[in-house]
Amino acid sequence: SKTSNTIRVFLPNKQRTVVNVRNGMSLHDCLMKALKVRG
């Protein structure tokens, strides 16, 4: 089974995003990807 960790990230202006960290990806990469999608 694939394991994925879901991390809630609290952003300024009362924004919130959820990042799924996959195996083999660093938290930083996942964060940058999530913020790019939002931006």
Results as ranks from 00 to 15, higher is better:
Asn23Ser: 11
Asp29Tyr: 12
Arg22Pro: 11
Met25Val: 14
Ser4Asp: 13
Arg16Gly: 04
Pro12Ser: 01
Lys36Ile: 09
Val18Leu: 03
Lys33Ile: 01
Asn20Ile: 14
Met25Thr: 13
Lys36Ser: 15
Thr6Arg: 14
Leu11Arg: 01
Arg8Cys: 07
Thr6Met: 12
Arg22Asn: 15
Lys36Thr: 09
Ile7Val: 10
Lys2Met: 13
Ser1Cys: 12
Ser4Thr: 15
Val21Gly: 14
Met32Ser: 05
Asp29Val: 09
Thr6Ala: 08
Cys30Arg: 02
Thr6Pro: 06
Lys33Thr: 02
Thr17Ile: 01
Asn5His: 08
Ser26Ile: 15
Cys30Trp: 01
Val9Thr: 05
Gln15Glu: 15
Thr3Pro: 15
Thr6Leu: 04
Ser26Cys: 11
Cys30Phe: 04
Gly24Val: 15
Asn23Lys: 12
Lys14Thr: 06
Val18Ile: 14
Met25Glu: 05
Asn23Cys: 14
Ser1His: 14
Thr17Phe: 05
Arg22Ser: 08
Arg38Gly: 00
Lys33Gly: 02
Asn5Ser: 15
Asn13Lys: 07
Asn13Tyr: 08
Leu27Pro: 00
Leu31Pro: 00
Lys2Val: 04
His28Asp: 11
Ser4Arg: 15
Met32Ala: 09
His28Ser: 09
Ala34Pro: 10
Phe10Cys: 04
Asn13Gly: 04
Ser26Asn: 12
Lys14Asn: 14
Ser1Pro: 15
Arg16Cys: 07
Val19Glu: 05
Val37Glu: 00
Val9Glu: 01
Met25Ile: 11
Val19Ile: 12
Leu31Val: 07
Lys36Asn: 15
Leu31Met: 09
Ile7Thr: 03
Arg8His: 04
Arg16His: 13
Gly39Ala: 07
Phe10Val: 02
Pro12Leu: 01
Asn23Asp: 11
Val9Gly: 00
Leu35Met: 12
Val18Phe: 03
Asn20Lys: 14
Pro12Met: 05
Arg8Ser: 04
Val19Leu: 08
Gly24Tyr: 05
Gly39Arg: 07
Leu27Val: 15
Met25Lys: 14
Met32Lys: 09
Ala34Ser: 11
Arg22Gly: 07
Gly24Arg: 12
Leu35Gln: 00
